[in-house]
Protein backbone atom coordinates (compact mmCIF):
# COMPACT_ATOMS: atom_id res chain seq x y z
CA UNK A 1 0.00 0.00 0.00
CA UNK A 2 1.31 3.43 -0.98
CA UNK A 3 1.08 6.08 1.75
CA UNK A 4 -0.14 9.42 0.28
CA UNK A 5 2.54 12.12 0.16
CA UNK A 6 0.16 14.64 1.82
CA UNK A 7 -0.20 12.35 4.84
CA UNK A 8 3.58 12.01 5.08
CA UNK A 9 3.99 15.82 4.93
CA UNK A 10 1.36 16.33 7.66
CA UNK A 11 2.85 13.62 9.89
CA UNK A 12 6.41 14.95 9.47
CA UNK A 13 5.17 18.53 10.10
CA UNK A 14 3.41 17.46 13.30
CA UNK A 15 6.49 15.63 14.60
CA UNK A 16 8.82 18.51 13.68
CA UNK A 17 6.45 21.03 15.28
CA UNK A 18 6.55 19.08 18.53
CA UNK A 19 10.34 18.66 18.47
CA UNK A 20 10.97 22.34 17.62
CA UNK A 21 8.50 23.44 20.34
CA UNK A 22 10.47 21.43 22.91
CA UNK A 23 13.74 22.91 21.64
CA UNK A 24 12.32 26.46 21.66
CA UNK A 25 11.47 26.14 25.36
CA UNK A 26 15.19 26.23 26.07
CA UNK A 27 16.60 28.32 23.21
CA UNK A 28 15.88 32.06 23.22
CA UNK A 29 13.75 33.33 20.32
CA UNK A 30 15.43 35.46 17.68
CA UNK A 31 12.91 37.07 15.37
CA UNK A 32 13.74 39.17 12.34
CA UNK A 33 12.52 42.75 12.32
CA UNK A 34 9.06 43.12 10.76
CA UNK A 35 8.16 46.86 10.92
CA UNK A 36 4.40 46.23 10.73
CA UNK A 37 4.45 43.87 13.71
CA UNK A 38 6.74 46.17 15.73
CA UNK A 39 4.20 48.92 15.04
CA UNK A 40 1.37 46.61 16.12
CA UNK A 41 3.05 46.04 19.50
CA UNK A 42 3.44 49.83 19.94
CA UNK A 43 -0.19 50.42 19.00
CA UNK A 44 -1.41 48.01 21.68
CA UNK A 45 0.30 50.06 24.36
CA UNK A 46 -0.82 53.38 22.89
CA UNK A 47 -4.46 52.36 22.69
CA UNK A 48 -4.50 51.48 26.41
CA UNK A 49 -2.73 54.73 27.33
CA UNK A 50 -4.96 57.08 25.35
CA UNK A 51 -8.20 55.17 26.00
CA UNK A 52 -8.97 54.46 22.36
CA UNK A 53 -10.28 51.25 20.91
CA UNK A 54 -8.60 48.69 18.66
CA UNK A 55 -10.71 47.21 15.90
CA UNK A 56 -9.59 43.73 14.87
CA UNK A 57 -11.13 42.70 11.57
CA UNK A 58 -11.06 38.95 11.02
CA UNK A 59 -12.44 39.01 7.47
CA UNK A 60 -15.06 36.80 5.90
CA UNK A 61 -13.13 33.52 5.79
CA UNK A 62 -15.14 30.36 6.35
CA UNK A 63 -13.63 27.90 8.81
CA UNK A 64 -14.99 24.95 6.84
CA UNK A 65 -12.90 25.62 3.74
CA UNK A 66 -9.33 26.51 2.70
CA UNK A 67 -9.65 30.10 3.93
CA UNK A 68 -9.86 28.88 7.52
CA UNK A 69 -6.09 29.03 8.12
CA UNK A 70 -5.89 32.82 7.99
CA UNK A 71 -8.99 33.12 10.18
CA UNK A 72 -7.42 30.86 12.81
CA UNK A 73 -4.25 32.98 12.67
CA UNK A 74 -6.41 36.08 13.23
CA UNK A 75 -8.07 34.42 16.24
CA UNK A 76 -4.69 33.49 17.75
CA UNK A 77 -3.63 37.13 17.49
CA UNK A 78 -6.98 38.34 18.86
CA UNK A 79 -6.50 36.18 21.96
CA UNK A 80 -3.31 38.05 22.90
CA UNK A 81 -4.57 41.49 21.95
CA UNK A 82 -7.64 40.90 24.14
CA UNK A 83 -5.45 39.83 27.05
CA UNK A 84 -3.19 42.87 26.77
CA UNK A 85 -5.87 45.51 26.22
CA UNK A 86 -8.87 44.17 28.16
CA UNK A 87 -8.37 46.62 31.02
CA UNK A 88 -8.45 49.62 28.67
CA UNK A 89 -11.26 52.18 29.02
CA UNK A 90 -12.29 51.21 25.51
CA UNK A 91 -11.65 47.47 25.14
CA UNK A 92 -11.00 46.02 21.69
CA UNK A 93 -13.76 45.01 19.33
CA UNK A 94 -13.50 42.18 16.78
CA UNK A 95 -15.61 42.00 13.65
CA UNK A 96 -16.06 39.08 11.27
CA UNK A 97 -18.02 38.25 8.15
CA UNK A 98 -18.78 34.66 9.05
CA UNK A 99 -21.08 33.49 11.88
CA UNK A 100 -18.79 30.65 13.04
CA UNK A 101 -15.85 33.04 13.13
CA UNK A 102 -18.01 35.52 15.03
CA UNK A 103 -18.81 32.91 17.69
CA UNK A 104 -15.16 31.92 18.01
CA UNK A 105 -14.10 35.58 18.25
CA UNK A 106 -16.44 36.02 21.25
CA UNK A 107 -14.98 32.92 22.89
CA UNK A 108 -11.44 34.08 22.14
CA UNK A 109 -11.97 37.57 23.53
CA UNK A 110 -13.54 36.09 26.65
CA UNK A 111 -10.50 33.83 27.07
CA UNK A 112 -8.22 36.88 26.79
CA UNK A 113 -10.22 38.73 29.46
CA UNK A 114 -10.11 35.72 31.79
CA UNK A 115 -6.35 35.40 31.31
CA UNK A 116 -6.00 39.07 32.30
CA UNK A 117 -8.22 38.46 35.38
CA UNK A 118 -10.79 40.84 33.94
CA UNK A 119 -13.51 38.31 33.05
CA UNK A 120 -16.24 40.51 34.55
CA UNK A 121 -15.46 43.29 32.04
CA UNK A 122 -16.26 41.08 29.04
CA UNK A 123 -19.25 42.06 26.93
CA UNK A 124 -20.68 39.83 24.21
CA UNK A 125 -20.81 42.84 21.86
CA UNK A 126 -16.99 42.82 21.72
CA UNK A 127 -17.15 40.04 19.11
CA UNK A 128 -19.46 40.94 16.25
CA UNK A 129 -20.74 39.54 13.00
CA UNK A 130 -20.72 42.68 10.82
CA UNK A 131 -22.20 41.18 7.66
CA UNK A 132 -22.68 37.89 5.88
CA UNK A 133 -21.24 38.62 2.43
CA UNK A 134 -17.80 40.15 1.69
CA UNK A 135 -19.25 43.53 0.72
CA UNK A 136 -21.86 43.35 3.47
CA UNK A 137 -19.07 42.72 5.93
CA UNK A 138 -17.00 45.61 4.60
CA UNK A 139 -20.00 47.96 4.87
CA UNK A 140 -20.76 46.80 8.43
CA UNK A 141 -17.15 46.96 9.64
CA UNK A 142 -16.58 50.45 8.14
CA UNK A 143 -19.21 51.64 10.59
CA UNK A 144 -17.05 50.53 13.57
CA UNK A 145 -13.96 52.53 12.53
CA UNK A 146 -16.08 55.62 11.92
CA UNK A 147 -18.19 55.63 15.08
CA UNK A 148 -16.41 53.93 17.97
CA UNK A 149 -13.33 55.97 18.87
CA UNK A 150 -11.00 53.54 17.12
CA UNK A 151 -7.29 54.39 16.94
CA UNK A 152 -6.08 51.38 14.94
CA UNK A 153 -7.67 48.85 12.63
CA UNK A 154 -5.89 45.49 12.52
CA UNK A 155 -7.03 43.40 9.59
CA UNK A 156 -5.89 39.77 9.73
CA UNK A 157 -7.80 37.07 7.88
CA UNK A 158 -9.39 36.47 4.51
CA UNK A 159 -10.14 39.71 2.66
CA UNK A 160 -10.68 40.29 -1.04
CA UNK A 161 -10.50 43.60 -2.87
CA UNK A 162 -13.44 44.85 -0.76
CA UNK A 163 -10.94 45.52 2.03
CA UNK A 164 -10.19 48.79 0.18
CA UNK A 165 -13.52 50.11 1.48
CA UNK A 166 -12.53 49.30 5.06
CA UNK A 167 -9.08 50.81 4.60
CA UNK A 168 -10.50 53.92 3.00
CA UNK A 169 -12.99 54.42 5.85
CA UNK A 170 -10.19 54.00 8.38
CA UNK A 171 -7.97 56.46 6.53
CA UNK A 172 -10.72 59.11 6.56
CA UNK A 173 -10.89 58.86 10.36
CA UNK A 174 -7.07 58.91 10.70
CA UNK A 175 -7.18 55.36 12.01
CA UNK A 176 -3.88 53.48 11.63
CA UNK A 177 -4.05 50.30 9.56
CA UNK A 178 -2.09 47.07 9.80
CA UNK A 179 -3.30 44.37 7.51
CA UNK A 180 -2.64 41.00 5.95
CA UNK A 181 -4.77 38.68 3.87
CA UNK A 182 -4.33 35.20 2.43
CA UNK A 183 -5.98 36.45 -0.76
CA UNK A 184 -3.68 38.03 -3.35
CA UNK A 185 -6.15 40.76 -4.35
CA UNK A 186 -6.69 41.67 -0.71
CA UNK A 187 -2.97 41.63 -0.09
CA UNK A 188 -2.31 44.00 -3.00
CA UNK A 189 -4.96 46.39 -1.71
CA UNK A 190 -3.57 46.29 1.83
CA UNK A 191 -0.04 46.87 0.52
CA UNK A 192 -1.23 50.09 -1.09
CA UNK A 193 -3.32 51.19 1.89
CA UNK A 194 -1.20 50.54 4.95
CA UNK A 195 1.91 52.21 6.30
CA UNK A 196 3.73 48.90 6.81
CA UNK A 197 2.37 45.97 4.88
CA UNK A 198 2.47 42.34 5.97
CA UNK A 199 3.08 39.99 3.05
CA UNK A 200 2.39 36.27 2.61
CA UNK A 201 3.31 34.13 5.57
CA UNK A 202 3.91 37.18 7.81
CA UNK A 203 0.14 36.97 8.32
CA UNK A 204 0.75 33.85 10.42
CA UNK A 205 3.64 35.24 12.46
CA UNK A 206 1.78 37.89 14.49
CA UNK A 207 1.27 35.50 17.42
CA UNK A 208 5.01 34.85 17.76
CA UNK A 209 5.77 38.60 17.78
CA UNK A 210 3.08 39.22 20.41
CA UNK A 211 4.64 36.60 22.69
CA UNK A 212 1.91 34.00 22.23
CA UNK A 213 4.16 31.11 23.25
CA UNK A 214 6.59 28.49 22.03
CA UNK A 215 4.11 26.83 19.68
CA UNK A 216 4.01 30.03 17.60
CA UNK A 217 7.80 30.29 17.56
CA UNK A 218 8.02 26.61 16.58
CA UNK A 219 5.54 27.30 13.75
CA UNK A 220 7.75 30.07 12.40
CA UNK A 221 10.85 27.86 12.53
CA UNK A 222 9.01 25.00 10.83
CA UNK A 223 7.82 27.36 8.08
CA UNK A 224 11.43 28.45 7.54
CA UNK A 225 12.61 24.83 7.36
CA UNK A 226 9.94 23.97 4.78
CA UNK A 227 10.64 27.18 2.85
CA UNK A 228 14.30 26.20 2.44
CA UNK A 229 13.30 22.68 1.40
CA UNK A 230 10.93 24.11 -1.24
CA UNK A 231 13.61 26.56 -2.47
CA UNK A 232 16.09 23.69 -2.95
CA UNK A 233 13.46 21.55 -4.69
CA UNK A 234 12.50 24.42 -7.03
CA UNK A 235 16.12 25.28 -7.85
CA UNK A 236 17.07 21.60 -8.19
CA UNK A 237 14.07 20.96 -10.47
CA UNK A 238 14.93 23.99 -12.61
CA UNK A 239 18.60 22.94 -12.83
CA UNK A 240 17.62 19.34 -13.74
CA UNK A 241 15.23 20.64 -16.43
CA UNK A 242 17.93 22.97 -17.75
CA UNK A 243 20.44 20.10 -17.87
CA UNK A 244 17.91 17.90 -19.68
CA UNK A 245 17.71 15.34 -16.84
CA UNK A 246 13.95 15.81 -16.33
Amino acid sequence: MLIPIELIIIAVSAILLGVIALWKRKAPARLRDVPALARLVRMLGLSVEDGTRLHISLGSGNLLDVRGGSSLAGLAMLRHIAERTSVSDSPPVASSGDPLLGLLSQDTIQAGYKAANAGELYSHTAGRVAGLSPFGYAAGAMHISQNENVSANILIGHFGAEVALLADAAERENVAIIGASDNLAGQAVLFANSQDALLGEELFSAGAYLGAGVSHLASLTLQDVFRWVIIFILLGGAAAKFAGVM
Binding site: S13, A14, H216, L222
Partner: peptide
Protein backbone atom coordinates in the same frame (compact mmCIF):
# COMPACT_ATOMS: atom_id res chain seq x y z
CA UNK B 1 3.36 34.29 -1.60
CA UNK B 2 0.81 31.49 -1.92
CA UNK B 3 3.40 28.85 -0.91
CA UNK B 4 4.18 30.97 2.18
CA UNK B 5 0.46 31.27 2.98
CA UNK B 6 0.06 27.51 2.52
CA UNK B 7 2.91 26.77 4.93
CA UNK B 8 1.45 29.20 7.46
CA UNK B 9 -1.99 27.60 7.15
CA UNK B 10 -0.47 24.12 7.63
CA UNK B 11 1.35 25.00 10.86
CA UNK B 12 -1.63 27.01 12.18
CA UNK B 13 -3.94 24.05 11.48
CA UNK B 14 -1.58 21.69 13.29
CA UNK B 15 -1.45 24.01 16.32
Amino acid sequence: ILIGVGLGALTTGLR
